[in-house]
Design a protein around this nucleic acid. Structure first.
Length: 492
RNA sequence: CGGGAGGUAGUUCAGCUCGGUAGAAUACUUGGUUUGGGACCAAGGGGUCGCAGGUUCGAAUCCUGUCCUCCCGACCA
């Protein structure tokens, strides 16, 4: 009957796909690797976007928009960045189609409309932006530039997964220009804090803040800071990155400024981004075998009211009471939906809204009216309780906060239970295969060692935690000296 | 990009081996009875069988190509 979801135990990947599709977040499309974000999923993204946008503005940033296309010559200017993305770039070579002379109903690429210079569809916008900044910056008085853009980018991935890795995705990318190294580093760290705060306060998803190793660093960056989250299957997921770009892009695009001493210097840069991948993270962080579990602060619908009635007369009475409740909740800023549609019965609606992860469900029946109560069910624990109409809105707003706190704590507890410190290679492999999660272990700091560990185990160093404690130890693989533990995991 | 599986009604799938009128459940429409955890009865509508070629008197079925999806690998946010 109805929509069945594969259980997490049976097949975690399939569970994830089932949730995305059946909760109506997204759909597959006719384009390989590209998905359609459906209204419910897009509403979730809009909520995330709005909160982040405000956080960016509160830290002094403004929005702008740069072109989708990057001339190849600009793209290749910063060598490491270009090299890093080269393998996954979509390239526009022609600007016109024409009717196929051999088949009037078909179109072919007009060979005469070949572009002089190919256009790369942006996999990220550093190139076009730094080319633009060159013209905007002359003196230290033009700095800093603190710009963010909300955009789509294209990375031609071999293997795609809904929200987690698609050929085209939506994101924001901040690109800032600074007069000093310290200021740029401070900006990089500030935005990492913004991301961490967003993940934990709004998504209720605990994250670990850290720095990427050289192998995992953004192509063209001096340092990549990241927030790493743990999914329920024990795999890690990079949820956001903030890059200190040094003067690499300034030098590649010849962006200099005159300082107070009238001397010319290269500009210092940062970039930082989060994407629709966060929706995948959100789904995998909290949801269960019955469907999504969304944090109240981001849920498109926070409260759904379902009437249970016998006949038109009783429905009219319930309608009156429900509409009164809707009005009260709306004045309190609660996103509430009264579902009085008659094409589904209450039981069906219960299951449907559980699938969609609506945090609170209120059922109002004829018996409840007589007793001046409603039945309240919370999605996270599935507990039901009978609550009086008196003080109901207070109760609900408090409950939404409680749910937000509860799912965060639950995720936090799971993560803490799944960070395992190990000191031997045998233990490392055992924990990785049997338990998963983050493994805290010593590493000798060499990229070669990291590569070997990845080759042997498929685990990568997710980050060097910012709160790493100094500790003498021996590398898990080579036995070479190490000054502190790093976090390993298999990752999405 | 390699290996495996799949694409038939909105959805889940049967039919394909062995070519011959397009099927089921569910969803949908209408009417009625219902409504406290995925209702029931009756009637009805809905598919160029992913797409394009080919073989054949005849193709969902056989052959070739191609597109899309899933799983596993390599690559990556």
């Amino acid at each position: 009957m109805g929509k069945e979801i594969t259980s997490r135990n049976e097949d975690y990947s399939q569970w994830y796909n089932d949730l995305i599709l059946k909760a109506g977040l997204a759909d597959y499309s006719a384009v390989r690797g590209c998905m359609v974000i459906k209204p419910y999923g897009y509403a979730l993204w809009e909520n995330m976007r709005d909160v982040l946008d405000k956080m960016f503005k509160d830290t002094g940033h403004v929005n702008a928009y740069f072109p989708l296309f990057v001339p190849k010559s600009l793209f290749e200017a910063e060598e490491k960045n270009a090299e890093g993305f080269a393998k996954e770039c979509a390239v526009v070579t022609h600007y016109r189609l024409k009717t196929d002379p051999n088949n009037k109903s078909k179109l072919i690429v007009d060979p005469e409309a070949k572009l002089e210079e190919e256009l790369v569809v942006r996999p990220t916008s550093e190139a076009i932006i730094w080319n633009t900044y060159k013209g905007w910056i002359q003196s230290y008085r033009d700095l800093p530039i603190l710009i963010n853009q909300w955009a789509n980018v294209v990375r031609w991935e071999m293997r795609t997964r809904l929200f987690l890795r698609t050929a085209e995705f939506l994101w924001q990318e901040g690109h800032t220009a600074h007069a000093t190294k310290d200021e740029a580093i401070a900006e990089t760290k500030q935005m990492l804090e913004v991301y961490a705060d967003f993940a934990e306060t709004w998504m209720a998803m605990p994250v670990i803040k850290g720095i990427k190793t050289a192998n995992e660093r953004f192509a063209g960056a001096e340092d990549t800071y990241c927030i790493e989250a743990l999914m329920q299957d024990g795999k890690a997921l990079q949820a956001g990155t903030s890059h200190f770009l040094g003067q690499n892009f300034a030098k590649a695009f010849d962006v200099t400024f005159v300082n107070k001493e009238n001397k010319s210097e290269s500009v210092w840069a940062t970039s930082w981004g989060v994407s629709t991948r966060l929706i995948g993270a959100l789904v995998m962080a909290h949801s269960d075998d019955d469907g999504l579990i969304l944090p109240p602060k981001l849920a498109p619908i926070q409260v759904v009211i379902v009437p249970i009635y016998k006949g038109e007369e009783s429905k009219a009475l319930i309608d009156a009471k429900a509409n009164e409740l809707v009005k009260e909740l709306k004045t309190r800023g609660v996103k509430v939906k009264y579902d009085d549609s008659d094409n589904a019965r209450p039981g069906w609606k219960f299951a449907e809204y559980e699938m969609k992860g609506v945090p609170v469900r209120i059922a109002i029946g004829t018996r409840d009216l007589e007793n001046n109560v409603v039945e309240i069910a919370r999605r996270d624990t599935k507990e039901k309780s009978t609550i009086s109409f008196d003080g109901l809105t207070d109760h609900i707003t408090q409950l939404l906060e409680d749910i937000q706190t509860n799912i965060f704590q639950k995720a936090m507890q799971f993560r803490e239970e799944n960070i395992t410190a190990v000191d031997t290679w045998e233990e490392f492999n055992k924990v990785l295969d049997e338990k998963g999660g983050f493994i805290s272990a010593h590493w000798d700091g060499s990229p070669e060692t990291e590569d070997k560990i990845k080759e042997f185990t498929k685990a990568t160093i997710r980050c060097i935690p910012l709160n790493q404690v100094a500790e003498e130890g021996k590398c898990i693989l080579t036995g070479n000296p190490s000054q502190g533990r790093v976090l390993f995991a298999r990752a999405y």
